[in-house]
Structure formats: structure tokens, C-alpha cells
Nucleic acid binder design. Structure first.
Length: 603
RNA sequence: GCUGAUGUAGCUCAGCUGGUUAGAGCGCACGACUCAUAAUCGUGAGGUCGGAAGUUCAAGUCUUCCCAUCAGCACCA
């Protein structure tokens, strides 16, 4: 099979706070595992994402900290880059939405939608907060219900009488967070994306993919459309964001959801520019053979299964009219949207305000990236919400990752290194049991690979782990440490077979735990690196420059294929792969939950 | 309130279109082994599948109702 084009689109984090375990479990780690697998397969992977620089949460955070939105997002963007490099999320490009490229493409998309009649103007009356200097979303508004006179009705619904309402219908509306803050109704004109006109196309699209999507994503999306698609506003009265490219609209900006979701597209274009091949992105976006995967959390499903599709359908052909190769090909819609559910923490929902959270930068200071990756992958909320618990982390790292896999590597390599002069022993002929165990691990390339293809990552890891256990069991049968005393040749057979198995497992584990697989690779005496390098680069545009995380696969030699380990290959001095965790961390870490977290100043 | 999802051994989870004594890993008990970060391997004890009713020769697996949890319900993205 010739190499496929795989696009891995990863949800864009708001740059208003550090990354936490939920980001990793929901989207980044699944995406990275999937991308690394496809790279090992020799496919052309383009994995992009970036910091969402705009949006109310960032301006709110800036006000809170007495600084500017720009300073807030740049501060967190830089931390995102470092954190993700450390945990090994291998983006071909992780950029942000305040680049000149993103602004330009977002505006072009807006104009194109406008020209094609997919946008309409409408006046809305919204409640404006003088003190917060913004229009408040309905759910942040509280007031007296005009029907039942209940005094704590929400802007969207009265909890007392159950009637749905518009916030402006409330008597004496005020901000929920700040009851003294009077809200003033203000009329304002905005552009809306006319979603309704895409209903049929989107239903067809959803039906076409229903059989291979996760049921929750598929069902949810279909119901969402069937309830009726209404227009969504795509402009706001704010000053932080992508300017609306129209005369007379200078004091408005594109609404953040509208510009952020197209980041997958704009970042692909930026990536192509950065590598000096400006049309290269079309190999994914205008190639019917390419597959685009959107890795997101469940809270974002309709944006990635409906609204983004509408935008893509609406702008079809953009930047492509005269292209000799791709000119007549439609813009590709996502092939799959493997949304994850949520990862709770110690049985409770994640919450920033209560600091009920596990922050990645903190975690990566204390634990190995692979330990974290392993536990999170073991607990992926693929079908339902899952739980991050420190007890679980301790148990899974010590009793599974370290005991089954780390120990297997350590016991075999240590034995081979000491008893066979630091080299891979040369077997005369393998026993049937030895050939069988090698074949069993080789079969993993098909079975684990098939699961990874289907984005069934948890099962893939479980299968890999089971193979490691199988090798341990076989080794206990063969007992080379006992056999060697009487029959060195037979011990050489089993040790050789064990090394071959480890060489296979090294690749099977590599998408999940790339750092330790690299160590195994080296200890087995190989040169080179399984994956490419992740670095933080500075890119200059016309008026300013920006930092980005970039994966360079140039040096990568890892391949998704069975071991052909040579007898006689010199081993390197083995050392344990994983640090055994002290049970005390459970109490220590639990103690940090809910405590105030001190964050550094933003310059 | 409406829509959708989830509820299976102590824990974390598998169980596709209904069909032999309900599975895995961890934990636990006992045993083996000692190459290995007291890791590994074997054996075993543990669930009647949230509750109730129903359909069926047969239900964890379909239907209805109830309970609990979660998400969405359209200007939070």
C-alpha cells in the first residue's frame, strides 16, 4: 500500500491558563499516539494545532491580572510550547491564532462566505455590562422572571417555572457574578453564518460516516442537526480578535469560535509556508485520498462535526481555483472526529476556580513523561468519562508499565549483557517455543496496528501490554538463567528470542511511550532515533514574529515492522527504563488538590 | 423540563447483530522461581450484570417504567 496522507487536527487550547491533564487525555495524547503510529507506518502525517489567542476568557484573565490580552496569551503560549515539547506531543506545527497568516486566511474565509451568500446581517439586542465592558452571554445573566416573578431566573431559562426566555425579557437583569452590575440592553448589528442552508449536505455527510464514527459522536451530531440548524453570529463587539474585513466594521471582531475552528486549515497553510512549499497543504485538504482526523473533547463536538463542515462546504475551492493539480477537487471534510469524554480527577469534575486540577507543567517536573503518557492512555475516556486518581497512577505505573514492560527489558537486557559479553547472542537454531513467542509479538503489528487505525487506542495499549506479559510468561518457562548453567547454547536461543521480542515490543509501545522506546532502541545497540525532533522555532512574518512548536521527522528511522535483530550486535549497558513511584506520592499529590496554586507574574 | 449517554467482580474497564458454567488487568490469598527496580510466573477466592416489570425456548445484550451520574439544549467555546 502506498503512503497515505493523514491530517491530525487537534483542538486549540485557550491561552488563558496552563495545560492540565484534561487537555492531554481529551485530545493531545490521543492525537499524538495516532500521529506517531502513522509516521512509523511511513504515512505522510500533518499534525497541527495552536493556542487560541482570542476570546473572552483571555480578556477576562488579562483584566484580572492587570495586563493585556496579548501579554496573557503570549505568556501561556510559550508555556504550552515547553510543556508539550516535554511530554512529546509531536505537532508538525503548533502555532497560534494571532499570526498574520491566521488573520489573513480567516478574513479571506469570511469574505468568501459573504460573497457566496452564506452570511446574513441581523440586529440583536444584547445585555451590555458597563463594568466588564462586554456583552454578557445569557447564562451569565440573572434577573426576575417576567412570567412567574422568580427573582433568580437565568438569562436562558427560569428554573422556577421552567420557561425558556431571552435575557432581555428579564426584569432587572444583572450579572450573576456581580449583582450590583447593572446591565443595559444595547442593539448591535452582526453577521451570522447561515447554517440552515447546509442541513441536507451535513446530514448526508454524517450518514456517510456514521458506521465508523464513535456512536456518541455520531448520534449526538445527528440529533443536533435534526433539532434544526439556526444561524450563528460570527462577529462581536470587542476589540481583541481578528478584525472584520469590511468598511464600517472597524470596532468589531470575528467571533472567537468562528476563527478558532478554522485554525486547522490556517495552520496547515502556515506550515506549508514555513517549510518553503506554499502549496504543500493541499496534499491533505484537496486530496480525496487523504484522511483528516479531528481530535477533540466532547464539549466541542458540534463545532467539529457540523459547524466546521458548514464553513468548509461554504468556502470550497478557496485558494485553489487555478491549481493545475487540485483545481477540480472539493475541499476535504474531516474523515473522523474521535472525540473523547472527560477525565475527572479523584472522582470530581475538573475545576480551575477550585484548583481541582492536575497541571501538566507541575507534573512533568516530578514524573517521567512516559509514565504520565502511559497512565493517561490506559485511562482514556474513549467511551465514557474516566477518572484520574493518584492511586491509579501509582498502581498502573508501578504494577503495569514498570513491572510488565520495564522489568522485561531490564531482566533480559541485563542478563544478556552480563552473561553474553554485552552482545546479542548467536543462536544455532531456535526451539519451537522460541519461534512461537517471536511470532506472537510479530502478530502484534497487525492486531495493535488495526486497533490504532480505528483510533481504539486504549485497546491497542492493552493488547501491547498483554504481549509483554506473554513474553514474561514464556521466559519463566524457558528459564535461561537456570539453563545457562548446563546448556549455554540453549540459553543463547531463548535470550536471542527474548531480545527479538523486546525489539518488536519497542515499536509497538513507541506511539504510547516514545521516550522509553528510544532508550530500548539504544540499549539494544542500534543507532539513530525512532522519531524526529521537537523544537521551538521562531517564525517571522511581515510585522512581527511568533514562536511555534515544530516536529522535524528528518532523522526518524523508526518503522512499524518486525525486528531483524542481528546476532552479535553490541548491546549498550542497560539501565532501568522507569522510575518506581513511592506510595507516598498519593497522599502528597492529593494534598495539592484544591489548594491555591501560585502562578508567576506575567510581565 | 427536553434530548443523548453511562451504571457489569474491592478498583479500572471489555462484553458486536440476544444463546454453553459473565471476561481482562490491578488488588487480595496461596504456591513456584531468583535473570530482574521484592519485579516475574502459576493457581485460586471474588460479580446474577443500578432497581422493577415485560418480550422470548433463551437477556448483561431487546421493550417500558423508576433511581443515580454525566453531557447538550444554540450568542461559553
Amino acid at each position: 500500500m502506498s503512503a497515505q496522507y493523514i491530517h491530525v487536527s487537534v483542538a486549540w487550547p485557550y491561552a488563558n491558563g496552563d495545560l492540565h491533564i484534561g487537555h492531554l487525555a481529551g485530545a493531545y495524547l490521543p492525537a499524538d499516539i495516532f500521529a506517531r503510529y502513522h509516521r512509523l507506518r511511513g504515512n505522510h502525517v500533518l499534525m497541527v494545532s495552536g493556542s487560541d489567542s482570542h476570546g473572552t476568557p483571555i480578556t477576562v484573565e488579562a483584566d484580572k491580572r492587570g495586563t493585556t490580552p496579548l501579554a496573557v496569551f503570549e505568556h501561556y503560549h510559550e508555556r504550552f510550547l515547553q510543556t508539550q515539547r516535554k511530554v512529546g506531543v509531536s505537532y508538525d506545527l503548533f502555532t497560534h491564532t494571532d499570526t498574520e497568516n491566521h488573520h489573513q486566511v480567516a478574513q479571506d474565509i469570511f469574505v468568501r462566505l459573504l460573497e457566496r451568500g452564506h452570511l446574513y446581517k441581523e440586529k440583536q439586542t444584547l445585555l451590555y455590562s458597563e463594568s466588564e465592558k462586554r456583552f454578557l452571554p445569557d447564562r451569565y445573566v440573572e434577573g426576575t422572571c417576567y412570567i412567574c416573578k422568580y427573582s433568580y431566573a437565568r438569562g436562558d431559562q427560569c428554573e422556577n417555572c421552567g420557561n425558556l426566555m431571552d435575557a432581555i425579557q428579564l426584569i432587572n437583569p444583572h450579572s450573576r457574578n456581580n449583582p450590583d452590575d447593572k446591565l443595559i440592553p444595547r442593539e448591535s448589528e452582526h453577521y451570522f453564518l447561515d447554517l440552515g442552508r447546509f442541513t441536507e449536505q451535513i446530514l448526508d455527510y454524517l450518514a456517510e460516516h456514521a458506521h465508523h464514527w464513535r456512536p456518541n459522536v455520531s448520534t449526538f451530531s445527528q440529533n443536533f442537526v435534526k433539532e434544526g440548524l439556526r444561524g450563528r453570529p460570527i462577529t462581536r463587539d470587542i476589540d481583541w480578535g481578528v478584525p472584520v474585513p469590511l468598511e464600517g466594521w472597524e470596532d468589531k471582531r470575528l467571533y472567537v469560535w468562528f476563527d478558532a475552528v478554522m485554525g486547522y486549515f490556517t495552520a496547515s497553510i502556515e506550515w506549508a509556508k514555513n517549510i518553503g512549499a506554499p502549496d504543500e497543504w493541499k496534499k491533505w485538504w484537496y486530496n480525496p485520498e487523504a484522511k483528516i482526523y479531528n481530535f477533540i473533547g466532547k464539549d466541542n463536538i458540534p463545532f467539529h462535526t457540523i459547524i466546521w463542515q458548514a464553513e468548509l462546504l461554504g468556502i470550497d475551492g478557496i485558494y485553489n481555483e487555478d491549481d493545475p493539480v487540485y483545481g477540480d477537487i472539493p475541499l476535504q471534510l474531516p474523515y473522523d472526529v474521535p472525540a473523547n469524554e472527560f477525565m475527572n480527577i479523584e472522582g470530581q469534575q475538573f475545576s480551575t476556580s477550585r484548583n481541582w486540577a492536575v497541571w501538566l507543567p507541575d507534573l512533568l517536573e516530578r514524573y517521567q513523561a512516559d509514565a504520565l503518557r502511559f497512565y493517561v492512555a490506559r485511562s482514556f475516556p474513549e467511551r465514557q468519562d474516566s477518572d484520574f486518581s493518584w492511586e491509579g497512577f501509582l498502581a498502573r505505573v508501578n504494577n503495569e508499565l514498570l513491572a510488565a514492560w520495564g522489568n522485561l527489558v531490564n531482566r533480559v537486557l541485563g542478563f544478556a549483557y552480563k552473561r553474553f559479553d554485552g552482545a546479542v547472542p548467536a543462536p544455532d537454531e531456535l526451539t519451537a517455543a522460541d519461534s512461537d513467542i517471536i511470532a506472537a509479538t510479530e502478530a502484534g503489528f497487525d492486531s495493535v496496528g488495526a486497533l490504532l487505525e480505528q483510533v481504539r487506542l486504549k485497546e491497542a495499549l492493552e493488547e501491547t501490554l498483554a504481549l509483554a506479559r506473554e513474553v514474561n510468561a514464556w521466559l519463566n518457562e524457558r528459564e535461561p538463567w537456570k539453563v545457562i548453567k548446563a546448556d549455554r547454547a540453549d540459553a543463547a536461543r531463548s535470550v536471542y528470542a527474548a531480545l527479538r521480542c523486546i525489539d518488536n515490543l519497542k515499536i509497538l509501545f513507541a506511539p504510547f511511550t516514545p521516550f522509553s522506546s528510544q532508550q530500548v532502541h539504544e540499549m539494544l545497540g542500534y543507532e539513530g532515533q525512532l522519531f524526529g525532533d521537537l523544537s521551538i522555532e521562531n517564525y517571522s512574518e511581515e510585522n512581527r514574529d511568533h514562536l511555534a512548536l515544530v516536529y522535524d521527522g528528518g532523522k526518524a528511522i523508526g518503522e512499524w515492522r518486525t525486528s531483524d535483530l542481528r546476532a552479535g550486535q553490541a548491546l549498550r549497558q542497560p539501565s532501568p527504563l522507569f522510575v518506581k513511584l513511592d506510595p507516598e506520592i498519593v497522599e502528597q499529590e492529593r494534598g495539592n488538590l484544591g489548594k491555591e496554586r501560585v502562578e508567576g507574574e506575567i510581565r
